[in-house]
């Protein structure tokens, strides 16, 4: 029986651009990292080749006239975050660039704060100085839960936690400022879960387990969103099986929610959030 041998020859060769046209175009950018991103976005094997100079900000673009055009190359580069005089990159893509790469933009857009998530590209976020009412409700309820745990009152803690869950669900993300929003995104699920678990049980020991992570979430939130009075971040070294745990209180005097009357004054203030 005949056996045929198939030989595949692969010729690796320098990608030559046919019908070549060369143009020099200004592309805004900062550093060498920008250079590699710009060139990677613009290059297509055998179709377009971009060489960008970080000092002159000029790009030498060579492309196959029959297969593509200058606009296509510049659009790709803009979609990677780099403006030119033809295309302006989407704000959310620009915001995702590493800080060192965030070059000075020729055209700045007003009103919209630049958001890191694409989900907000059409959204007006007002940077607010005012105290955020919906977050205040979250904090207020947190303190209620904490007080209940200080009393080792599982039933009361469960009651108060219901209020906390309500407050958490009532928070409208578009009322938060940028920083609050970012933290909120991070802690929301844990906040909800912990609060819900505390509702579901009247066993103070179990509630305290969740209170550990709950306090962590609220702490992060308090750091970016100011409360009406100074808040004390306190620490007990014995809680959480000796690993130590934190909580927040409106009073500087230590009243331990993890041990209640068993060791009421165990712990100390490690930070004051004004």
């Amino acid at each position: 029986m005949a056996t045929f041998a198939m030989v595949f020859v692969f010729t690796a060769c320098e990608a030559q651009i046919k019908n070549e046209k060369k143009e020099n175009v200004k592309i805004y950018g900062n550093c060498n990292m920008c250079k590699s991103t710009i060139e990677k976005a613009g290059n297509i094997n055998k179709i377009a080749k971009v060489e960008w100079n970080k000092d002159t900000k000029m790009a030498a673009i060579a492309y196959d006239q029959k297969a593509t055009n200058l606009d296509a190359v510049l659009k790709r580069i803009a979609l990677a975050g780099y403006d030119s005089d033809s295309f302006r990159a989407p704000d959310d893509v620009y915001a995702k660039l590493p800080e060192c790469c965030q070059y000075e933009r020729a055209i700045k857009t007003s009103a919209k704060t630049e958001m890191a998530h694409t989900g907000h590209s059409g959204h007006d976020m007002k940077a607010t100085e005012q105290k955020n009412q919906s977050l205040k409700a979250v904090f207020d309820n947190y303190f209620d839960v904490k007080d209940a745990l200080v009393k080792t009152d599982g039933k009361l803690a469960s009651e108060k936690a219901k209020g906390l869950v309500k407050a958490v669900t009532a928070v409208k993300m578009n009322e938060l400022n940028t920083e609050e929003h970012n933290v909120w995104m991070k802690v929301l699920n844990n906040l909800k879960e912990d609060a819900e678990h505390i509702v579901e049980t009247t066993d103070a020991k179990h509630q305290r387990d969740h209170f550990i992570t709950l306090s962590k979430s609220v702490y992060e939130l308090l750091k970016v969103s100011k409360y009406e009075v100074p808040v004390y971040y306190q620490f007990c070294p014995m809680a959480n099986d000796g690993k130590g745990a934190n909580w927040l209180s409106k009073e500087n005097a230590v009243k331990n929610p993890y041990y209640g009357s068993q060791m009421l004054t165990c712990g100390k203030t490690v930070e004051t959030i004004k």
Binding site: L79, F87, A106
Partner: peptide
Amino acid sequence: GVKQLISPLP
């Protein structure tokens, strides 16, 4: 003017 792009859908 300069073409303002919108980020493509992933």
